[in-house]
């Protein structure tokens, strides 16, 4: 499945590494990424990921990151809750 996610993150040098590490470790592959730095100390990261797993398995983990302010999964792409593990 392909999911489109919009993250609001704190502007810290390592924030993208954190996000990408979680995406890889939780079983998702990045197919597209775009980051915009804002003036208000946050950045927006638009990431398209692909996986057989349910997106909540990833979005819940990203939400837990201290430097992730918000993690939105674009509504049309939300799949079943349960991951295939």
């Amino acid at each position: 499945m392909i999911y489109d996610m919009m993250l609001t993150v704190h502007q810290r040098a390592e924030v993208l590494e954190r996000v990408l590490r979680v995406i890889r470790h939780r079983g998702f592959k990045v197919t597209s990424i775009n980051m915009q730095v804002h003036e208000n100390e946050t950045s927006m990261v638009d990431i398209v990921v692909e996986s057989e797993r349910a997106i909540t398995l990833l979005s819940n983990q990203l939400t837990k990151l201290i430097d992730v302010v918000e993690c939105q999964v674009l509504p049309s792409q939300i799949e079943n809750k349960l991951a295939s593990v």
């Binding site: 909540t56 398995l57 819940n60 983990q61 939400t63 837990k64 809750k81 349960l82 991951a83 593990v85």
Partner: peptide
């Protein structure tokens, strides 16, 4: 307390 544990392995 950790929402990421809910529905992770068992719905």
């Amino acid at each position: 307390i950790d929402a990421a544990e809910l529905d992770k392995l068992r719905l």
